[in-house]
Design a protein around this nucleic acid. Structure first.
Length: 607
RNA sequence: CGGAGCGUAGCUCAGCCUGGCUAGAGCACUUGGUUUGGGACCAAGACGUCGCAGGUUCAAAUCCUGUCGCUCCGACCA
């Protein structure tokens, strides 16, 4: 079911649209006249915004920045957000998950208990109360929900259970950026499943996976599920839902030949076209490494040039890392790049960093650029699997200005661990089907994890199974960045004039644009009538009753991106017509008496 | 955390290098008028502790120091 393949690929098999609720948000948030709400559109782009979706969030009057990574949602932004949240709720409820609401403020004790007070300390925002007691502003809620379940669920008969919430999270981002994409405070839907066995947990996982596919599809997003690294949350395996976008902060490796798709942090391949172990050793290969002078050569690239002319795939790159305060050597082929996520997963700890130049010199007796692992025994050596059996390699001699050639890794380097450390590169053969892999930048909007029993054991969420034996619950956790999803929709759906909202998440579905707002005049009278009738049918409609010139109204409606615009002017009204304009489409004259039916038909068709 | 850049009206920016008179423009805002199918025009007006603190100077938006904030790049490629 989950093995090596993405179960569902939205590129090829769109889900059938399900019965939804583009109508009737009005019971919560009433229809609106433009002059009565606040839609502060901007002609010019604020200097702080870099990418299209961030610019449009500001220009269309959806959000305003309070401080770095902290945003106020304005009325239009709230409406779009509520629509996404409602889709999420409907699909979570449909999948059998139960809505709860947990505290954002959490006691540090539960984080100490799970061990993440240390391992996740970089992202934990903390606060102190009057008694100087410390509190944690929750970046996620595994600790809280597991504590709850530990107290409330004691029998396999009470499972499966899946709890979710839509709530504000806090993360101490090193560098908030791109508006809502990476913020200090953001809204997340998080869900946590509890099962009696591994097999049942798999079922819960699959339910969420399927729910996520539906959620993003209903939001009008093309989101691709990919295999992912589990990061600091831990766990056995996971999938991320990725929205392809050049401005995304992640890279996805995918294959067009089969359904393989993975985050680059996790992706595997059959390796590069030039196989190390197939490189024939040079004819004059002696039976030992040979030292040769390389003054001033401190990069892989420099060694590829004259007079040395050693191809990068013939070099061994030696990196020094400090892992849990101890040095390790990492060996990669010269043309490969270290993938830190893979390193973390190979070592089983995230507590690592590159060693400093001083630490390196103290340990190796040479500076970066002249490092190598030949005959090194005092430091553990992790080598990338691609170097297995490599012969005739060149590497640093641990003496500034010298390298070794004729290095055979099996003979000359005492490798302790062979692991996968390299990043897959564009064009390498797919591990499943052999076709060339592609790489695409993407925005992560959702992540599903199968956690196992890591948290249930540490936080003592035990239950009694059928045989009366005490066992830890098997957990899964599932997140959707709700505010990020909102911005991803804009990033994926906009043009030069503004946002192009999908019907399902547009702040208002219909914008009525009378070109004259004279009270009691024929134009405004008809506009009011259509407004009232659409409102009565539960359509999310806004009436642009501003006394503005037509150009201003048209530009604003396109900037904000309402899917349907009904234009009413004296010219067309003389013929008994109004103008129907779909965002991004052509203008269509429609008989005034038919417009309400026509609009509801368009909306109904989309449901 | 390292590097770079920027902080002047609600927004976009000029002025700073080379110190000097009352600190400017466009957009937005207020009032009046003319306009009215794709971000109008005319006139009048309101809006600024030039991020903050200190220093140099007869004189600081301008030079120096510090500090705070924002943006971008980096924080694997030895």
């Amino acid at each position: 079911m989950l093995g090596g393949k993405s179960h569902l690929d939205l590129r090829h098999s769109p889900l059938p649209a399900c019965r939804s609720s583009i109508l009737h948000l009005s019971s919560l948030i009433p229809p609106m006249r433009w002059t009565q709400t606040l839609i502060p559109t901007l002609k010019e782009t604020p200097a702080e915004a870099e990418i299209a979706s961030h610019k449009l969030l500001l220009r269309a009057g959806l959000v305003r920045k309070l401080s770095g990574g902290l945003y106020t949602f304005l009325p239009l932004g709230v409406r779009a957000l509520r629509k996404i949240e409602r889709i999420v709720r409907e699909e979570m409820n449909r999948a059998g998950a139960l809505e709860v609401l947990m505290p954002a403020l959490q006691p540090p004790e539960i984080w100490q208990k799970s061990g993440r007070y240390e391992t996740a300390s970089d992202v934990l925002l903390k606060a102190r109360d009057r008694a100087k007691k410390e509190w944690v502003l929750g970046p996620t809620h595994e600790e809280v929900i597991t504590t709850l379940v530990a107290g409330e669920i004691n029998s396999y008969r009470q499972m499966p259970k899946n709890f979710y919430q839509i709530q504000t999270k806090f993360r101490d981002e090193i560098r908030p950026r791109f508006g809502l994409m990476r913020a200090k405070e953001f809204i997340m839907k998080d869900a946590y499943s509890f099962d009696a066995t591994d097999e049942l947990a798999q079922v819960s996982y699959q339910k969420m996976y399927d729910a996520y596919a539906r959620i993003f599809q209903r939001c009008g997003l093309k989101a691709i599920p990919v295999e992912a690294d589990t990061g600091i949350i831990g766990g056995k395996f996971s999938h991320e839902f990725m929205v392809p976008a050049e401005t995304g902060e992640n890279e996805v490796v995918y294959c067009e030949g089969c359904n393989y798709a993975a985050n680059i942090e996790k992706a595997m391949s059959q390796g590069p076209a030039v196989k190390t172990h197939k490189l024939a050793p040079p004819a004059d290969e002696p039976h030992h490494p040979a030292k040769f002078p390389t003054p001033g050569v401190v990069t892989i690239e420099a060694l590829t040039k004259a007079p040395h002319n050693v191809p990068a795939e013939r070099q061994i790159k030696t990196l020094v890392y400090l892992v849990d305060s101890k040095l390790v050597l990492l060996l990669l082929r010269g043309d490969d790049q270290l993938n830190e996520a893979k390193l973390i997963s190979a070592l089983g700890t995230g507590n690592l960093r590159p060693a400093t130049a001083e630490e390196i010199f103290a340990a190796m007796g040479a500076n970066p650029g002249s490092l190598g692992a030949v005959h090194v025994t005092k430091i553990p050596i992790y080598a990338d699997s691609l170097l297995c059996d490599a012969t005739g390699m060149t590497t640093g001699a641990n003496e500034d200005g010298f390298h070794f050639r004729n290095v055979s890794i099996n003979r000359d380097i005492p490798v302790n661990h062979w692991v996968d450390l390299r990043s897959v590169r564009l064009g390498e053969a797919c591990g499943n089907c052999g076709k060339p892999l592609k790489v695409q930048r993407a925005i992560e909007v959702g992540h599903v994890f199968k956690l196992g029993t890591k948290y249930s054991e540490k936080l003592e969420a035990f239950f009694l199974d059928e045989s009366g034996k005490q066992r830890p619950a098997v957990m899964g956790c599932y997140g959707i960045g709700v505010t990020r999803t909102l911005q991803a929709v804009i990033e994926q759906s906009h043009d030069k004039d503004g946002v192009v909202w999908p019907l399902s998440v547009a702040p208002y579905t219909v914008c009525i644009t009378p070109l004259s707002v004279t009270p009691g005049g024929p134009v405004m009278t008809l506009a009011e009538k259509i407004y009232g009738e659409l409102e009565a049918r539960g359509v999310d409609v806004i009436l642009d009753d501003r006394d503005e010139r037509p150009g201003v109204k048209f530009k604003d409606s396109e900037l904000v991106g309402f899917p349907i615009r009904v234009g009413i002017g004296e010219k067309s009204l003389a013929k008994g017509e109004v103008e129907l304009k779909l965002r991004g489409g052509a203008l269509t004259p429609v008989k005034a008496e038919e417009i309400v039916a026509k609009v509801t038909e368009i909306i109904g068709r989309a449901e």
